Simulated assay, not measured.
Amino acid sequence: MPAAPADVAAPPADAITSPTGLASKLIEAGTGTENPGPADTVTVHYSGWTTDGKLFDSSVERGKTISFPLNGVIAGWTEGLQLMVTGEKRRFWIPANLAYGENPRRGAPAGMLVFDVELFEIKKAPEPPPVPEDVAAPPADAITTASGLASKVLSPGNGSRHPKATDQVEVHYTGWTTAGELFDSSVLRDEPVVFPLNRVIAGWTEGVQLMVGGEKRRFWIPANLAYGTNPPPGAPAGMLVFDVELLDIL
């Protein structure tokens, strides 16, 4: 079991504290020259203690490193790991507001937390797909159906079969608002998605049926075929623009 640091109770005088209140101290210099970005995936070993010296989690104790995207963890980790380079070991004193809070969810530790972290690897996040030049409205060469769905083939496919509404399809996609704001992308996650065509927004159900395997197409989906002008929380409003690549029809 990793022993609690002698300075676990509070940051020592030689710790560096950021404007957010995150304190850290270099334990061992690294060999790398590049810091991870906020969306990069890192591989680390770590041990975490409460300020009374109680060990509450440790990948070291489990004997297995852990990998995660920096934008998917507590704020203190997102900020702190960006200070590091590969091969480096650093100790962090993370205040409650950058961790799990003073009244955390069940099973999570409360208050300031102390972590020793060793950074092994940085996997850079993919660059966001560029915003289409015609994102604001369908161009003159787009084809518009009776429902108001507009689309344009970006690259032809190599298949001959169109999916039916009841088929499952595998796609890569990126979605923007007409202001050019990217709101979702399987390309950024590097994870294609599989779904039945009759279980998505109407614009997708109609539009993907126009495609063949291997095809890439851009869609301008009006609000009434997307999430509406007053969508549920977290969903984008108004006309949406999607670039879709049909990888497979299942």
Rank of each mutant, 00 (worst) to 15 (best):
Asn103Val: 11
Asn103Ser: 02
Pro104Gly: 06
Arg105Thr: 08
Arg106Asn: 08
Gly107Ala: 11
Ala108Leu: 15
Ala108Thr: 08
Pro109Cys: 00
Pro109Glu: 12
Ala110Gly: 02
Ala110Trp: 06
Met112Phe: 00
Met112Ser: 05
Leu113Phe: 03
Leu113Gly: 09
Leu113His: 08
Val114Ser: 07
Phe115Lys: 09
Phe115Ile: 04
Asp116His: 04
Val117Arg: 02
Glu118Gly: 06
Glu118Asn: 07
Glu118Thr: 15
Leu119Gln: 01
Leu119His: 08
Leu119Tyr: 06
Phe120Ser: 14
Phe120Arg: 14
Glu121Pro: 01
Glu121Val: 09
Ile122Trp: 08
Ile122Pro: 00
Ile122Lys: 02
Lys123Asn: 11
Lys124Ser: 13
Lys124His: 14
Pro126Leu: 13
Pro126Gly: 06
Pro126Cys: 10
Pro126Met: 12
Pro126Arg: 09
Glu127Cys: 00
Pro128Gly: 11
Pro129Ser: 09
Pro129Asn: 11
Pro129Glu: 04
Pro130Ala: 14
Val131Trp: 04
Val131Arg: 10
Pro132Phe: 01
Pro132Cys: 06
Glu133Ser: 15
Glu133Phe: 00
Asp134Phe: 04
Val135Gly: 07
Val135His: 06
Ala136Val: 12
Ala137Ile: 01
Ala137Phe: 07
Pro138Asp: 04
Pro138Cys: 00
Pro138His: 03
Pro139Gly: 04
Ala140Asn: 13
Ala140Arg: 03
Asp141Asn: 12
Asp141Glu: 08
Asp141Phe: 05
Asp141Lys: 12
Ala142Gly: 04
Ala142His: 00
Ala142Gln: 08
Ile143Tyr: 03
Ile143Lys: 13
Thr144Val: 06
Thr144Gly: 11
Thr144Ile: 09
Ala146Asp: 13
Ala146Ile: 05
Ser147Met: 05
Ser147Ala: 11
Ser147Tyr: 06
Ser147Gln: 02
Gly148Val: 08
Gly148Thr: 10
Gly148Leu: 12
Gly148Met: 10
Leu149Thr: 10
Ala150Asn: 08
Ala150Gly: 15
Ser151His: 13
Lys152Ser: 01
Val153Pro: 01
Val153Ala: 07
Val153Phe: 03
Leu154Arg: 07
Ser155Thr: 14
Pro156Val: 03
Gly157Asn: 00
Gly159Asp: 12
Gly159Thr: 10
Gly159Phe: 02
Gly159Tyr: 07
Ser160Gly: 15
Ser160Thr: 15
Arg161Cys: 07
Arg161His: 10
Arg161Met: 13
Arg161Thr: 15
His162Met: 03
His162Val: 07
Pro163Cys: 05
Lys164Cys: 02
Lys164Pro: 02
Lys164Asp: 13
Lys164Tyr: 09
Lys164Leu: 15
Ala165Gly: 13
Ala165Tyr: 01
Ala165Met: 11
Ala165Trp: 00
Thr166Phe: 04
Thr166Lys: 13
Thr166Pro: 06
Asp167Lys: 05
Asp167Arg: 03
Gln168Asp: 08
Glu170Arg: 15
Glu170Asp: 14
Glu170Ala: 14
Val171Pro: 06
His172Met: 13
His172Glu: 15
His172Val: 07
His172Ala: 03
Tyr173Ala: 10
Tyr173Ile: 10
Tyr173Leu: 09
Thr174Glu: 00
Thr174Gly: 12
Gly175Ile: 05
Trp176Asn: 01
Trp176Phe: 09
